Simulated assay, not measured.
Amino acid sequence: MSPMRHLHLDPSKRQPLLKDQESPNEAPKSVPVSKVFTHPKGSSNDEDASIYFIGTATTVIEWEGIRILTDPNFLHAGDHVHLGPGVTAQRKTNPAVDLHELPSLDCILLSHYHEDHFDQLVEKSLNREFNIISTPHAKDCLTTKAEPFKAVRDLDFFDSMMLHVDGGGHTNAGGYGKVRVIKVTGTPGKHVPPGPLSIANDLLHAVPPTNGWLLELGHSYKAPTGGDPESIETGYRIYISGDTLLVDELKEIPQRLGRENIDLMLVHLGGTTILGRSMPLLMVTMDAEQGLKLMQLMDPDVTIPIHFDDYDAFLSPLSDFKKKVDEGGWKERVVYLDRGEQYRFKVRGK
């Protein structure tokens, strides 16, 4: 495990998201929300954070003005992506917003370097100085281009990075500052099942390695002189599965958490199935059955399915997942978002 790394995010000093933006102030102030959901058990009307679903695995996670974009994919219905040697997929839906319609952001969380998560439009348009957190493989790809990305940080499985939220929101007590932080931890993901197919993929590099993510939103204390913060007082915990199958490596996540709970899980579904010249028919993301088993393994308070119907390679429809959830008795712990809808929640300990 690598030493803890740190990244300071200051909403007053954001980088423009796009190359052709001179200032982040040119961006819209917010996203257009068509419908808002809160906890299935009810709301206290004090929510201070949200998840906005754009489409595929693309979301905006916001907490008191800090905004993180996940897996940016802004292609439209009819557009194609390249998923491996001889493998393409066609998009069936439109995103809730286009790339240039996003508000100013602080960083991108990229689960892996695949065109349905980081499309050619995004790659062409993004400011090369913008903060990106991803896998070691994605960092190698993004930083060795003719026009390289210059602010890519990589996290391997169970490596962590502390995002310090600067520019306000601090309180002082006993000579110490209470600082908002988001701890980002890379979690295991396996796009290809173990065995001969995994060995073949290692040789062919057809499907890239992938991460999931654990986000711990909360506060930490540090001395006024600016020393490293102590352990985070977590007020909300989000697990994002990434494009993974239900593999044994995922069991280590709840084992490491111990008695700590997951408040929200974003699960990538779709049962993505590819067929190409160099690979046999292969499912590379969880289908409905695996999605339910992941809920049983992680036991999150709330689950939101994403990445379920945007491409023609997604062969496990959301209706199958809903049926499994209802049959398994988990109906009251799932929120279903359509593109353009938002889930709001409260980070404890403010």
Rank of each mutant, 00 (worst) to 15 (best):
M1D: 15
Q15L: 06
L17F: 02
D20E: 10
K41C: 12
G42T: 07
S43F: 04
S50P: 15
T58S: 15
V60H: 07
I61N: 10
A77G: 05
G78V: 03
T88Y: 08
N94H: 09
N94Q: 06
P95G: 07
D98S: 15
L102E: 01
C107G: 11
K124H: 10
N127I: 03
R128P: 09
N131S: 14
S134Y: 10
K150A: 09
V152T: 03
F157T: 11
D166M: 07
A173M: 11
I182F: 01
P193S: 02
W213M: 09
H219G: 02
A223M: 15
G226N: 01
I232E: 08
G235D: 01
I240M: 14
D243M: 08
T244F: 07
T244Q: 05
V247S: 09
L275I: 08
L275S: 14
L281D: 03
T285H: 01
M286W: 03
A288N: 03
A288H: 02
A288Y: 04
G291E: 03
L292S: 01
M295N: 06
A313Y: 02
F321Y: 11
K322V: 10
K322F: 10
R333A: 12
V334E: 07
V334S: 10
R339Y: 06
R339H: 07
E341I: 03
E341S: 04
E341A: 09
R344Q: 15
G349W: 00
K350Q: 06
